[in-house]
Design a protein around this nucleic acid. Structure first.
Length: 469
RNA sequence: GGCGAGGUAGCAAAGUGGUAAUGCACUGGUCUGCAAAACCGGUAUGCGCGGGUUCAAUUCCCGCCCUCGCCUCCA
């Protein structure tokens, strides 16, 4: 592909080309889910955006190494596993499986490596030891270990938070949570290792500083070092992770290695629902299952999630799912029309007439622009007017674009085989007979009757079909 | 208060220094007994408000208003 992906980088605030450091494979890390419940569509917005990033890189001919962690130990997983009366392992395994199932139906490419925090405790301990040895961390009086923020001069560079603001925020939090400030040298210092507490139950591990568990920020740093090394291409997550999570990762990693870390930062903006932040109290926290119960498929959800640029907030509504359904139908019909002219679908590695859409994707993943361009091209080049050769190229290009967006076309509703109940079929036949007899009144009555039963009639010259409303 | 993102048609959402993609919805036509489906069209003199720069701004600059996110563990 002539076009290379450029992405906005949070750290430098510039749009830069994404090129592998080693000249071969793009190696990137994504902060994964905390597995204490079903992921909601807001979580998936981030994962879908990352998925498209990967697909664009791969479609451009560059292989990737995709690492995404599973957070399976933290306050929430421990708390909720106890509520559920399960061991932490069993509890998080269940939700990890659910997460994987959701990823599959959303057509997300599985990461090449998916490490879990619990499985990497020795790695985390080793990193803490290094940080203590070189003076960036210290054991507090409570048996926890803290990172000394003051020892890292670049702290705050990613989030652009000034020292003064960090203190302000931390002191408010301290008074709010009644933090014992004597255990830490500074309020801004954060935990690398958390000393065992009674409420942790059986969830603790031995360490040189006593029993406890790793701090949340550390796992990513430790696993990145293990699977991607000190230096890697790109790091991604939701915008809310910029501070403190990613800021802390940078501090931990740069101070325990040679000062290198991610070369590019990609952050995905949040999804709002009906204009408001998603929250349990507002009752607007949708999971894939919630939407499936309302009759919406995963590809429809995926379409909605990619319909706004990843860097800007996107508003989700149920109406947008209806809109997505129609749009997908339109794409499916275009593909069907092309297949009528050019039946053999070959896996294309070029966008063909959709070059503009491909270019837009390569320019900071402009998915909405690319989709608009795809429709524009379809509107302009009428499939029916194309030669066999042109149709082949176009169908290949459409296929290339849809694969890159990870959109699997649904069956065309009007043609989808549906089981029509016998009584409905009978009514429909009676209506057809009445119509043939030019008994319009009876025909219309029967049609209305069918409609109120949830079935629509579609007539053609030769006969009729019945489809669910 | 600080930092960041954003305000474009009924809904959603791209984009550009020269006069606004696209999807849904709506609507006109063809077709149909009438519809539905399908196909072909139409729909923002306007891009938060006020100034400025320019031959020309929605697009650049300044000020203001509003929305959202983050400011210690929320994707």
């Amino acid at each position: 592909m002539p076009n290379r992906l450029t992405l906005h980088d949070t750290l430098t605030r510039t749009e830069r080309e994404v090129t592998p450091l080693d000249g071969k494979t793009l190696r990137f890390y994504c902060c994964g889910p905390t597995v204490y419940g079903p992921a909601h569509i807001g979580n998936f917005r981030t994962f879908v955006a990352q998925d498209i990033m990967r697909r664009v890189v791969e479609a451009g001919g560059t292989p990737t190494l995709h690492v995404r962690n599973i957070t399976d130990v933290d306050d929430k997983t421990i708390r909720d596993s106890q509520k559920a009366g399960q061991s932490l392992t069993d509890f998080t395994r269940g939700w990890t499986e659910k997460f994987h199932a959701d990823c599959t139906v959303l057509n997300l490419l599985a990461p090449h490596v998916e490490p879990s925090a619990v499985a990497h405790i020795p790695h985390q301990i080793a990193m803490i030891e290094k940080l203590i040895a070189n003076g960036h961390a210290y054991a507090g009086s409570d048996g926890s270990v803290y990172f000394r923020v003051a020892s890292f001069k670049d702290y705050g560079k990613l989030s652009h938070l000034e020292d003064r603001e960090l203190r302000l925020g931390a002191s408010e939090a301290a008074s709010a949570t009644d933090w014992d400030e004597y255990t830490k040298d500074s309020l801004t210092d954060f935990a690398l290792w958390k000393a065992r507490k009674p409420e942790d139950g059986a969830n603790y591990w031995p360490s040189p500083w006593g029993e406890g568990r790793p701090g949340w920020h550390l796992e990513c740093s430790a696993m990145i070092l293990e699977y991607l090394g000190e230096d890697f291409d790109l790091h991604s997550g939701g915008v809310d992770l910029i501070f403190p999570h990613h800021e802390n990762e940078i501090a931990q990693s740069c101070c325990s290695t040679h000062g290198k870390f991610a070369h590019h930062w990609m952050h995905v903006a949040h999804l709002t629902v009906d204009g408001a932040k998603m929250s349990k109290s507002l009752g607007n926290l949708y999971t894939l299952e919630d939407l499936a119960k309302r009759g919406y498929s995963a590809v429809e959800v995926r379409y909605v999630l990619i319909y706004g640029h990843y860097s800007a907030p996107l508003n989700f509504t149920l109406h947008s799912l209806d809109s997505a359904r129609q749009a997908l139908q339109k794409l499916a019909k275009a593909d069907r029309a092309l297949s009528g002219i050019s039946p053999a679908l070959q896996h294309s590695t070029t966008p063909g007439p959709f070059a503009e859409a491909w270019k837009l994707l390569c320019h900071d993943l402009n998915v909405p622009g690319a989709l608009g361009s795809i429709f524009g091209t379809l509107n302009k080049l009428k499939p029916a007017t194309l030669s066999n050769e042109e149709a082949t190229t176009m169908r290949g290009g459409l296929n290339f674009m849809l694969n890159t967006l990870g959109l699997q076309l649904p069956a065309i509703v009007a043609e989808a085989p549906t089981e029509v109940p016998a009584d409905i079929q009978t009514l429909a036949q009676q209506r057809w007979d009445a119509k043939q007899a030019k008994d319009w009144a009876t025909a219309d009555t029967l049609r209305k009757q069918l409609e109120s039963a949830g079935w629509l009639i579609k007539d053609s010259k030769e006969g009729f079909t019945v489809v669910p409303k």
